[in-house]
Design a binder for these strands. Structure first.
Lengths: 189, 189
DNA sequence: GTACTAGTTGTACTACTGTTCAATTTTATG
DNA sequence: CATAAAATTGAACAGTAGTACAACTAGTAC
């Protein structure tokens, strides 16, 4: 058998399977956070959700904190990609951001809630803080393509964050036009 | 002995002491949230912090949820009073709000963090949600004294919330002037 | 004094927690 | 084939969780 890639690098089937398992466990963690909140995350609940054993969860993530860091990183990565898409795509960036925020009311609600729970955890766990900061840094980067005024950038970040809170906690209106109007207030001259 | 108030109502020393104890337990709960986060709140940790026994904590608050609701309510009440002060006091209301938000970086950091932790909990516990909404409703009321534009009101609420996040999670600048400038962007014509 | 109520304590039970570890299976290497 | 490495399992340990409950103390009313 020739177990090589096009690059000629060997692929260890064991490690590949391990990576898959690791990803499954992270996904299971997010499912648990979505269902029961961050407080519901234990090696046992995660393992059960992933259909494996407790020991395997500790095999990949020695401590619960490691697991939470990995889960938050995963969500942050996804959001980073989404925002980078908006930045790189020609067109109205504020409208794109408004649509992304509006998703927090529907399909993206679970993800947004999970991100928020983990971000709150981060306030108390230093290793989590850089990861939690990413969402805000990404918005700031998007804002920087629209204005040079630092106050306007800070205002857009704050508005985005506050709008998400409103949607998640207040069941506020998730009309993209309304959201865009609020965002526009932050960056207009 | 004449155990009556000016109104002539009898005061039961036992009940009075009970009310004091109840308040002490709530205060202890906030201290625990401040130190270890909402996840650190258990009947035992709270009782230890309050200098009483576990059973007494369950005597006043049958379930942990009851205790968390009471603690969040206490914080929300304090914030409500602060904001009402700003509304009722003549002068620049935005400057007052900016000073209040800036406190989240210093003396008020613990309180603000506790409120945020409990508010995040509230997303998942329906009985907590109305209490968690109060902070935002109060800001909206303050905003309503400055403008009639619903978008501007929503923008000020979102900006206030986002600025607090920035301070708590990013260690962002807590300069009242900077904060006021960002807030001003939300409500100006 | 007695009777009653509110507050308070210590104890105990069951359930679940993070974590460890030796044993086992699966896969790769030579 | 044999050997080693990675993945996976089951069981176990010690610690802590929520909660219930009977017993006890302190304050009230008559």
């Amino acid at each position: 058998m020739d177990d090589t890639t096009d690059d000629g690098e060997h692929i260890d089937g064991r490690r590949a399977r391990g990576e898959r398992r690791r990803a499954e466990i992270i996904e299971a963690t997010l499912a648990v956070v979505t269902r029961d909140g961050a407080a519901g995350v234990t090696h046992r609940t995660v393992a059960k959700q992933a259909g494996t054993t407790t020991s395997l969860s500790t095999y990949y993530f020695a401590t619960l904190d490691d697991l939470l860091v990995a889960a938050l990183t995963s969500v942050a990565d996804a959001y980073t990609a989404r925002i980078r898409d908006i930045i790189d795509t020609p067109g109205d960036k504020l409208a794109g951001l408004a649509r992304l925020i509006a998703e927090s009311a529907g399909s993206g609600r679970e993800r947004a809630l999970a991100e928020r729970e983990l971000a709150t955890l981060a306030a108390r766990r230093p290793p989590l803080r850089p990861v939690a900061r990413r969402w805000r840094e990404n918005i700031a980067e998007l804002a920087a393509t629209l204005t040079d005024d630092p106050a306007a950038i800070a205002a857009l970040v704050a508005a985005s964050d506050g709008l998400c809170t409103a949607i998640l906690l207040d069941n506020a209106s998730a009309d993209p036009d309304h959201i865009q109007a609020v965002l526009q207030r932050a960056v207009r001259d």
